[in-house]
Design a protein around this nucleic acid. Structure first.
Lengths: 269, 269
DNA sequence: CGGGGATTTGACACATATCAAGAGCGGTGG
DNA sequence: CCACCGCTCTTGATATGTGTCAAATCCCCG
């Protein structure tokens, strides 16, 4: 069986994020009144794809002790920068972020894109300071999760501890996927994998799997994929010609998911 | 300031492992009688670079509750394989491992090399099964850390919990470094970074910073660095010609650390 | 001591980077 | 409302780094 997008982004290689097991019917979630008490995890419409995922009602309530602040980050602003002291993790409540890692000589690289329900800042725990910067790609809001409180709650609730371990572990798995992508895929495979991954993550959030807007520039995509922006642009054009996708500026329609998946299976030959 | 090896492998980009803060005088450690009760963390000569790092005497004793089994893995054998159920983490006690991630079409990639004191298997926690395989590159021994017990102990000892979080976080940081390497460095920079990282890790274990034996083949190095084995071989030859290193089969002498560091700073231009 | 994998090295191919120019779009200010 | 400016994107021509294929040698392991 050739490598399918599902395989890449979901099973052994969750290329960028989100366990497929947490792919939920968001319709169900959105039926409920939207965030009457919006700072509470227990009533958050993201609870099934965010930190609370997997908790039962009673336990979810306890999460409300954890998250008591929101923070708004305008497009282009940083949530934190490399070198900042580490105090909190952040759950994306709305909007879109990129994380970038910088080398002393100025080179820097996008290490990930984060959307609603995803957690930012886990790389800061070990060094006790952030190693990368998180920048909002559109006006965004995050829930602040003070790490000390998370530790405390993990101590009291074994379920919480395990949930948090799982989240960190999944981040490691996600990065393995990116390493595979950067280390062994050709440019067209990388871009196909990228699009399929975005599609999957939008789907999990109740959006269309095939129509979405890119929040990032060609350069940011290229940086993430280890390619130059011109290469990304050319590939978009080629995918367009081949009727795999429709691109117009930042708006993307995926026309042939199976075709993209097929692309990904091809060995560097 | 150009990117130095130290920068890459130590500070913002701990390219492959091991926090420089844990770079200890191993001489001190090796003075003590070597493993009279060798299954105990409290008397293990690796305790300053392994899981117990950072614990005081009393706490270290409690670690002995955690690790009660050793396992020997012969060269070429797997410690675990992708798809195996996840039960335990493993601390390398002696020897050398590689971890590989596989794609359905047969492509696979080395995602890391692990030496004494480093932890294997953290990617299994989230999915509850191992996503990659760990293979011994020489006859090796690992300490088995049952995950359930680790959770238990984390619950009882806040310090343990934090220590474990830090370890996972550092693994994330390490992988960020690899992503940077794969995404934005040229072949010669990658190999230089690789050699410097190995050197640093050997140093931290009390071995020579400049003379060591590679345990892995050119192909495995290439796979890890996203290069073909021929490219790795050619680069070794070139570094040799340029008197940066001396290579003879698997044995390496680094002749000019500063030169290798300089190499790494060069932009992909 | 034999054999098969590992390594080296060369010639060549090709994917992607680089350089360059121009077009499109969006925001800002007159 | 229009004009301008800057940034993003597209596209072409060309350069180059690294992959591919092939052959010979080496050496380690059984």
């Amino acid at each position: 069986m050739p490598a399918t997008a599902t395989a890449i982004s979901a099973r052994s290689v969750p290329a960028f994020a989100l366990d497929p097991n947490s792919v939920i019917s968001v319709r169900d979630a959105t039926v409920r009144p939207l965030a009457k008490t919006p700072t509470r995890c227990s009533s958050c419409n993201l609870r099934e794809i965010c930190l609370p995922c997997g908790f039962s009602g009673q336990d979810t309530d306890r999460l409300d002790e954890l998250v008591y602040t929101r923070r708004t980050v305008k497009r282009g602003e940083s949530l934190y920068r490399a070198g900042d002291a580490f105090n909190s993790l952040y759950a994306v409540r709305s909007g879109f972020f990129k994380t970038t890692q910088t080398l002393e000589d100025g080179r820097d690289q996008v290490t990930g894109f984060q959307m609603a329900g995803e957690i930012l800042g886990m790389d800061g725990i070990g060094p006790e300071q952030h190693g990368c910067s998180a920048v909002a790609l559109e006006d965004s809001q995050v829930c602040v999760i003070p790490y000390a409180r998370l530790e405390q709650l993990s101590h009291e609730m074994p379920g919480m501890q395990r949930q948090f371990h799982k989240m960190m572990s999944r981040e490691i798995v996600r990065e393995h996927g990116v390493m595979l992508l950067l280390g062994s895929m050709r440019a067209e495979e990388r871009l196909a994998a990228f699009l399929l991954n975005l599609s999957q993550r939008f789907t999990a959030r109740g959006y269309s799997p095939s129509e979405f807007n890119l929040r990032m520039t060609r350069e940011e995509i290229g940086s993430f994929l280890g390619l130059k922006l011109e290469t990304v642009s050319r590939l978009f054009s080629r995918f367009h010609e081949e009727s795999l996708i429709k691109v117009w500026q930042k708006s993307i329609s995926i026309l042939d998911i199976a075709g993209l998946r097929r692309l990904m299976g091809q060995r560097m030959h």
